[in-house]
Design a protein around this nucleic acid. Structure first.
Length: 479
DNA sequence: TTTTGAGTTGTTCGA
DNA sequence: GTCGAACAACTCAAA
């Protein structure tokens, strides 16, 4: 037991419950000083985007408030991280620091350097696992290497020792005799310069309480029908926990635990379907840890020579939801407005960019990085490479989503399109996913003038599909 | 070392 | 309208 204070360095673990770093500091016995250091440049070239910043601001406010309720505080500073921490050690007389691990390559390099430097200073510096059910180095093939296929990876996880139960929120956080200075959260400049984030604000409640409420709502309302509803973007049938998970407002152990104890009727079936989604998050982190180069280049080396197109106008049209394909445009506009897109539509929109338009997957990844509130380097990278077929899976070359049939299948009455593409709202369901085929009388009746208030399709899907198949043949030849 | 079976999420064509 | 087969070849993981 030490009476000197301990620092808890909050990063992507903005919660008090099931927070191993916080628990370790409490356990140590002395005063606890919670710290957040803003240093986005240290994550270059993947510093958080605008939507992430917006969320971070709200989440820091929420964390600060819950700490106040514990008669504690959140000490906020801006970077550089190491120098700031050393200064805090000097100011507070602390002799230990705890944080929860992150797995992004730049962050890992930084954290290792910080740990070494602080230990050289004679301090206790420990990192813990608050973000994953299974550490990337604990799940290995029989040969001792990393997995590159999801199914055997997840099987191995399920065969391993079950994740431990979540840690409780500490009952008490001992305050230091005097608090070090803090910057106001607003001084970090995370809030939008003008109010573009109203749609995000309306759609979400960042913070630990918001995360817990989302999980509860998912268990109460959606888990029982998860298997059927999760693919329909007009239905709130998915968990929508992704931004909360990214910022660590809730941890995977809490979700795992909740799924295992879900009581709603039919919850078991839904939970069985849902847990692999958490598994995909684990797998993405596993891949990013073992193959840190994937955020900037395809895992499959053959794709370095892929004949991508450069088409700024098409990229712009995609980003703005003006491709002329209603399901794609609806998704892109949902993203722009709310900072989030339904997963089914993410796949369709991503397939459209990489296959119909042949625009490089990393252009899409960059756009998502800036606009998603759940932008997460591991998940985003893995998702895009999976869609483009250049990632760690056996994506068949012929998997090219048809935006019309995907729309008709998963948004049969067009409710999703109507919500996000209001200029098509009056079209009958029969034509809403392919307005270019609608009789002119129908278009007129619905006040749709193609090329005037809604674009013609920027590419013809069947031609684009043929072109993509040709392009993907070059991969085969280059092996 | 070699072999074998399998690989999140699809589409289209033709019977 | 429905249904099953075809759509490359490759790589991974395990035996």
């Amino acid at each position: 037991m030490s009476n000197a204070p301990s620092l808890v360095w909050f990063r992507l673990d903005l919660r008090l419950e099931d927070n191993p770093a916080l628990a370790a500091a409490v356990q140590r016995g002395g005063p606890v000083i919670p710290v957040y250091i803003y240093a986005p440049g240290e994550e270059y070239p993947w510093a958080p985007g605008a939507a992430s910043d917006f969320w971070l601001h709200q989440s820091l406010c929420a964390l600060s408030l819950s700490l106040k309720h514990k008669r504690s505080r959140l000490i906020v500073r801006h970077g550089p991280s190491l120098e700031t921490l050393q200064m805090l050690f000097r100011e507070t007389g602390a002799d230990a620091i705890y944080w929860n691990r992150r797995y992004e390559p730049a962050v890992r390099r930084r954290d290792e350097a910080i740990k070494t430097a602080l230990r050289t200073d004679g301090l206790c510096a420990e990192s813990l696992n608050g973000a994953l059910l299974f550490e990337p180095w604990d799940v290995l093939t029989k040969q001792g290497g990393p997995y590159q296929v999801f199914t055997p990876f997840w099987r191995a996880c399920l065969a391993a020792e079950e994740p431990s139960d979540p840690l409780p929120t500490p009952a008490k956080l001992a305050a230091p005799e005097s608090w070090p200075a803090t910057e106001p959260i607003a001084a970090l400049g995370l809030e939008p310069a003008f109010n573009w984030a109203g749609g995000i604000r309306a759609a979400w409640t960042p913070g630990e309480v918001g995360a817990a409420n989302r999980l509860e709502a998912f268990l109460d309302d959606a888990i029982a029908n998860y298997t059927d509803d999760r693919d329909c973007p007009a239905i709130p049938g998915t968990s929508r926990l992704s931004p909360h998970l990214h910022f660590g407002e809730i941890g995977p152990r809490q979700i795992w635990h909740a799924m295992k104890h879900a009581l709603a009727p039919n919850a078991t079936k839904g939970a069985e379907k849902f847990l692999p989604e958490i598994g995909w998050r684990e797998f993405s982190h596993h891949l990013l840890y073992h193959f840190p180069q994937v955020c900037d280049e395809p895992l499959r080396a053959a794709f370095r020579n892929f004949p991508w197109a450069e088409d700024t106008r098409a990229l712009k049209a995609w980003q703005r939801g003006q491709t002329g394909y209603p399901i794609v445009d609806a998704g892109m506009r949902e993203l722009w407005t709310t900072g989030w897109m339904h997963n089914r539509v993410r796949m369709v929109a991503a397939s459209f960019l990489t296959k119909d338009l042949l625009i490089p997957w990393d252009e899409g990844a960059r756009w998502f990085w800036d606009t998603l509130v759940d932008a997460d380097l591991a998940n985003n990278t893995q998702g895009w490479q999976w869609t483009a077929g250049c990632g760690a899976d056996a994506a068949p070359y012929f998997r090219i989503f048809n935006p019309v049939s995907q729309g008709e299948k998963f948004d049969p009455d067009g409710a999703y399109v109507r919500q996000w593409v209001p200029e098509l709202a009056q079209l009958p369901a029969k034509w809403i996913h392919k307005p270019w085929d609608a009789p002119s009388a129908v278009l007129k009746e619905a006040e749709v003038a193609l090329g005037r208030n809604y674009p013609h399709p920027i590419v013809d899907h069947s031609e684009a599909r043929a072109r993509a198949l040709e392009a993907y043949k070059t991969i085969k030849n280059s092996q």
